[in-house]
Design a protein around this nucleic acid. Structure first.
Lengths: 180, 180
DNA sequence: CAGTGGTGCGACAATTTGTCTCAGACAGGG
DNA sequence: CCCTGTCTGAGACAAATTGTCGCACCACTG
């Protein structure tokens, strides 16, 4: 396809599943996607790929994604960086923005939200479109599934990590995944 | 006392109890404190008082403290602003920093934390990344805040977009966010 | 001025959670 | 083999939350 006209985009995330899913979704939307799974690899790939947009995970092997932000900024001053993390917190959000990130989203987020967040500080200050957001139930379901995966399917441990009662988690899991 | 040598500081908060307690604590630490209980009053007081530091509450009668940030910045470009709110969320934190706040703290915070946050206005990439994933309740709160921001605070529209009852959203918003 | 759409909030029923159980499975030790 | 700890599904019932309806009260607009 017209890769030479497509906007180059870099995904930095050490979860290969997440990385692959997002890469596919963005490629389908016409972006020229490269991926990296660590801060150092990201710098290297960025040099070759010259991305205009990037998503950065915080919790990775080795250095935190936070340290990567100023380095990428130094390398490519025009780069729009979106921090995208499953371990979101107010303090890292504040730091990320101060360090030059253009936005910060907690996972789970879908490709449209990612793009909206990345575009948000483009010349057009107006927010033109608001795509329909995930319902709270859908978001909850995805988050539960992600954490459940991190604890290898252990329901008790997941319930503890999520601060919810095991019985409640049990009941939520028994229900069908919510539509929409 | 030596009010002429003390650093002038402005507290913007519509909770008189909080405002008074913080004002006392900061006065005792040698600051020259003024208070305001609304965005408009804050602008007026700032003109007279010429503060070097300010704490700003987000949820106030009338305009949100978020709108106050660029106005104060325009009035006093050197002003260090700390957003201090009982209804903290990542999306308002990101907005506040983008608008020029130097820091953002959830209430409750004691006077020492407030001062530390006001003084520390250079970014720090060493901020630790949270160990545990967000609780479902926290994630829900963050998501609601984000969507609410996208609909410019319109509760009815947000409830529709999230597929939840307006009354329920109203009740959730009235609650404090869950920590962790 | 009527019509539309927003907001806050009371009241009550319907539904969901929290809590406490119990019982069965499975994995180490000792 | 028995003991111990942990995981699991599930019943029962109280506690809490949510859905639903209604009402009053703005603000805006044709």
């Amino acid at each position: 396809m017209s890769t030479e006209h497509a906007t180059p985009l870099l995904i930095v995330d050490d979860d290969p599943v997440f990385s692959r899913v997002l890469a596919r979704a963005l490629t389908r939307r016409g972006y020229h996607v490269a991926t990296a799974s660590s801060a150092d690899e990201a710098l290297e790939v960025a040099r070759r790929h010259q991305p205009a947009l990037a998503t950065i995970d915080l919790k990775m092997e080795g250095r935190s994604g936070l340290t990567l932000i100023p380095e990428l900024k130094a390398l490519l001053p025009e780069l729009n960086m979106l921090v995208l993390t499953g371990y979101a917190s107010i303090s890292t959000a504040v730091e990320a923005i101060k360090l030059g990130a253009t936005n910060y989203l907690p996972k789970p987020a879908d490709a449209d939200q990612v793009l909206a967040a990345l575009q948000q500080n483009s010349p057009d200050a107006e927010t033109p479109v608001t795509e329909s957001p995930m319902s709270v139930n859908r978001l909850e379901w995805e988050h539960i599934q992600k954490v459940l995966g991190e604890y290898e399917g252990n329901v008790s441990a997941t319930a503890r990590a999520l601060g919810m009662h095991r019985r409640t988690l049990q009941r939520k899991l028994a229900k069908r995944p919510v539509r929409q």
